[in-house]
Design a protein around this nucleic acid. Structure first.
Lengths: 291, 291
DNA sequence: ATTGATCATAGACGTTATCTATAGCTCCTG
DNA sequence: CAGGAGCTATAGATAACGTCTATGATCAAT
């Protein structure tokens, strides 16, 4: 089997028409090049170059070989450039899975900073529920997932992010509740708007109410946090949303938080990635940014 | 600079999805492959494979590298196949320069034998005068030339071929000359047909006559040996041709040789090639055949 | 004739590719 | 659940071979 390193030498010798020049470009000495070419010729049983005191010139057969090797070498050069770009993060991609609301209300500033720092990296945001995100993470379709904890999966490594506080909010229509402290029973008298059934937040609130002996049944169910906010503002009911995601509405008074007589447990955002699988360069820089 | 040999290892590891299998295919041990891949990863600063107990799988970046390297390796394989074919003379070309008449009347059987033995070799016959043939030989456009000797050129190596005998011939119209022995003076009374001025044979006969104090001036001048023969048969004059090329006509009596009172010097056919430049495999096999 | 290129050759050296031996891991099976 | 059969990683020894220096041979140009 021919040592492919010899083709590199052959390529430069043929390209420059000189063993000495090839040697300089390859940072080796001229006898080494001479020896390498000889080796190639011997192992092929074909003379590749005509030698004279001005340099070397390809024979017919050498020229035939060159026509293949040239293309091959160019591909390798392109590969090396591409790899260098991937390493410098001048190129590449970062694929993140998670919920749209977390992307919009929590990740956005990080994504912006990252993109400004590494404009060559393509960002792929893959929205889906927590189980969906875990699934595509295991399939290798994303580098990391952003979801609500807890996640218990031995294959996954989890890094904690911000802590969020969910709460019930209402708009002007329910202004009467503004300074009251409601019991769960009383709250349930009002029309409730919740996120759709398969979400982690929805599961959490359902369990919480059950632990107090109540069943929470929404009047309206939606699939978007923005809609949840909008419906509460318009007075269609009381929404259960993440407090940090509605800071604007709380400030301008279009929504207010409903005080409850129990403490709502905080919810923890986390980043998950495959345990034992190395992160791509692009992904580990992003993780660094998050810390 | 990355050792291209590592790409060969990378290629097989990626292709088979297993370092052990790659090792077998490359006739080295598994730790060597493991080491080679590690080296490649280190020098690029990029993880190329995910490893687990079932084998290895390309990472995103590894897959990107593979897309280039695969093409490159395939080209090298094609090159190696092509070179093997060139060496076995399953492929390649043999380019010969010389005069059409030598090709037709002298080389033909050799060319046929050669072609039967090496049907994959393309034959290029490049007809031209002796100086033209020498010129294209020096330009590297042909592997060898077939011409009349003598050739004196330090750059060329000459191998002697057959010895030919030129002579004057006539057809039925000049039947009266059949058993006579003519002097040059007498011969010149008849219309002479010669090959065109720039040929080696023409120069030789001109010089020969001059050495005896005569000037030979043809009635007709032609550029083809076949025409020379045909014109003599039709009785348009006495042609100066190579005896060996008209054996058929001499036998069937359509032409007869004119006896002269001087001995015509023989002319030597020779093969010439570039001194100091190695012959292609295809060409040296042809030379062998000629011997 | 001399200088300055070129490539080829020989022999010594030292890097490094490869090997053996072994460990660690995961999956499968009796 | 223990043990076997894959797989890859690691460590250290060894030997191959790629590279070097020194020199020769050839040719072209000054």
């Amino acid at each position: 089997m021919i040592n492919y390193e010899l083709y590199k030498v052959f390529y430069w010798a043929a390209k420059t028409g000189s063993l000495s020049k090839a040697a300089k470009l390859l940072f080796i000495t001229q006898p080494s090049v001479s020896h390498a070419i000889k080796q190639l010729e011997d192992s092929m049983g074909i003379t590749l170059f005509y030698r004279n005191s001005k340099g070397v010139a390809l024979t017919q057969e050498g020229a035939t070989l060159y026509s293949y090797i040239e293309k091959s070498q160019i591909l390798i050069s392109l590969a090396e450039e591409k790899m260098a770009a991937l390493k410098n993060l001048d190129s590449g991609e970062l694929r993140i899975g998670g919920s749209d609301s977390l992307f919009k209300h929590y990740m956005l500033p990080y994504l912006e900073t990252y993109h400004r720092k590494y404009p060559g990296i393509k960002l792929h945001l893959n929205h889906g529920t927590t189980p969906e995100t875990i699934a595509i993470l295991k399939e290798g379709k994303i580098d990391l997932g952003v979801v609500r904890l807890p996640i218990v999966d031995p294959q996954l490594e989890v890094m904690e992010g911000i802590q969020l506080q969910d709460c019930f909010v209402a708009g002007a229509k329910y202004a009467e509740l503004k300074d009251k402290v409601l019991s769960l029973e009383l709250l349930l008298q009002y029309p409730i708007i919740l996120f759709s059934r398969n979400s982690r937040v929805r599961m959490a609130i359902t369990e919480l109410f059950e632990s107090y002996g109540y069943q929470i049944k929404p009047e309206i169910e939606v699939g978007s946090v923005d809609l949840l906010i909008e419906l509460a503002r318009k007075g269609l009911g009381i929404s259960y949303v993440t407090k940090e995601f509605i800071s604007k509405e709380l400030e301008d008074g279009s929504l207010f938080e409903i005080q409850l007589d129990i403490k709502m447990p905080p919810s923890q955002v986390g980043f998950m990635m495959m345990r034992n699988l190395p992160l791509s360069n692009a992904a580990s820089k992003f993780i660094e940014l998050l810390k």
